[in-house]
């Protein structure tokens, strides 16, 4: 990841969120959080953003459960997930790699990551999901996930450091390639089959004004939640 790539992904997230009423962002999601804050600024007050871990950007006053209750009631329009793996079905795996069974009620994973968080629940209750990965390669984008944290469905976006895809009719289809990527490289870097248009579009790089907004007001707000990310990727320059 480079600062330019982070900018491109943040601006793309903001584009995908246009017109959403309430966008929520979970843990460990600096790019979605920045994209949502940018989208809210561009929407001029018609979008609400709730970021887990932020004291300023929250709509919740009833503890950790409220986000989940809100989702089950349909009060959250869009949410984000990354994952150890994302597959051809748009299923996600947040838990780990190579499960080999269950011991005393515990899954035995060859390699375990942080955990499933709220994904098994939110993925089926929030209508618009944006899946994101900052390292698009055949190990992260696989034919079939090792563990289904949440099953896939149509309408999901997949945003990576190489491209934007959307799942329709049971398959991912390339929406746009990021600048500098080629169709051949993308196919080689993706562990599942997807549909490619004859002449793929290029993901538009944000204009100067948007870049300034991200490096200025958005970076300041993100710095309060993700200080390391903000200083590494969003410093003016």
């Amino acid at each position: 990841m480079t600062p330019d790539k982070a900018l491109l992904m943040i601006a793309t997230v903001a584009r995908l969120l246009e017109g959403k009423g309430h966008v929520a962002v979970g843990a460990s999601s600096p790019i979605p959080a920045a994209g949502a804050l940018l989208a809210a600024r561009l929407a001029g007050g018609s979008m609400r953003v709730s970021i887990l871990g932020s004291e300023r950007h929250t709509s919740f006053t009833d503890g950790g459960r409220e986000l989940f209750d809100c989702a089950a009631q349909g009060r959250i329009n869009a949410f984000f997930f990354s994952g150890v793996q994302i597959d051809a079905e748009a299923a996600i795996n947040l838990l780990g790699l190579s499960p080999s069974g269950v011991a005393e009620g515990s899954p035995v994973m060859g390699k375990r990551f942080i955990g499933n968080f709220g994904a098994p629940y939110l993925a089926s209750l929030v209508p618009d999901l944006i899946l994101f990965r900052t390292d698009h390669n055949p190990k992260t984008l696989v034919e079939k996930v090792d563990f289904v944290t949440a099953p896939g469905r149509d309408g999901r976006w997949l945003l990576t450091d190489r491209c934007l895809m959307r799942r329709e009719n049971g398959r991912f289809r390339l929406v746009s390639l990021h600048p500098g990527e080629t169709p051949g490289e993308l196919v080689a870097a993706t562990g599942f089959h997807f549909d490619m248009p004859d002449e793929p579009k290029i993901t538009p790089f944000p204009g100067d004004e948007t870049c300034e907004l991200v490096r200025g007001a958005v970076a300041e707000e993100i710095g309060a939640i993700y200080p390391r990310f903000a200083s590494q990727f969003l410093t003016p320059g």
């Binding site: 899954p107 499933n116 629940y121 089926s124």
Partner: peptide, 12 residues
């Protein structure tokens, strides 16, 4: 609880 059905988590 709403949701969760379809996740492998239930088998664990």
């Amino acid at each position: 609880l709403a949701g969760v059905i379809g996740s492998d988590l239930i088998s664990f």
